[in-house]
Amino acid sequence: MAIVTGKKNQWRVWAAHVFLIALIAVTLFPLLAVISISLRPGNFATGSLIPTEISFEHWKLALGMSYMGADGKEVHPPFPVLLWLWNSIKIATISAVLIVALSTTAAYAFARLKFKYKTSYLNTMLLLEMFPRVLALVAIFAIFERLGAHFPWLGIETHLSVIVAYLGGVATHIWTIKGYFETIPQEIEENARVDGATLWQTFYRVLLPMAVPILMVVFVLAFIGTIIEYPIASILLREEPNLTLAVGSKYYLQDQKFLWGDFAAAAVLSGLPITLVFLFAQKWIVSGLTSGGVKG
């Protein structure tokens, strides 16, 4: 663009920089503050944003270690953060693997095979996906409460129930994978078919190896989606050792027992890896955003 820029424009550029830097300062303030708080001794102390005295007491507690307090008493970790993190990772990994398996196979049929009411199925799926799961919490609770009466391994307070409940969220992933499959030329599979491969073989041995990138993306998306899920996990899991991170973190900040510093360390410890995974996958997530998904 060849537009002559005058003095006035120079001022505007400077103003924009000031505006952006101010905004970024405000935006990043909570994130920086929480790091600083996690390094500040005590749960109630209000201090400067840059801690004058560095203490790792909150970090020790977050990592499951006890430390000797100033009054000579040993301070124990208030909550099993690492256990919660492990629960979260376990549930999210298994759910994500299953979600990828379910959505890949379905996406194959929607992308490559001809069958009746294909468009109706696709649209119904899209419509159903728009209803937040929060609306069906009572029913989800009732279903697992009743199942648990007969099959305790699938009832309330089991991780399996949470994993199973998450399996419904495959619709958007089916759309994503279907879109990717459609960009892969069909001729390769047709050749394989001519060579005598069965449908399953063309899918499993020809198409899937070419679709590994999208499978990774869907895995990461499903993983993040389940690890940050709160409502369903909060009704199905109630006992302390069973909780996921998303449900458990809340207990740090109760009105009666406000463990601000301990929470800060636990939050940085558990939030950082998820944030990094998200930033790493940002490129693909952003391209998915335009198709209408909203992060929860």
Partner: peptide, 8 residues
Amino acid sequence: PGFISILV
């Protein structure tokens, strides 16, 4: 993650 930033 939302559950962390909201609690922060």
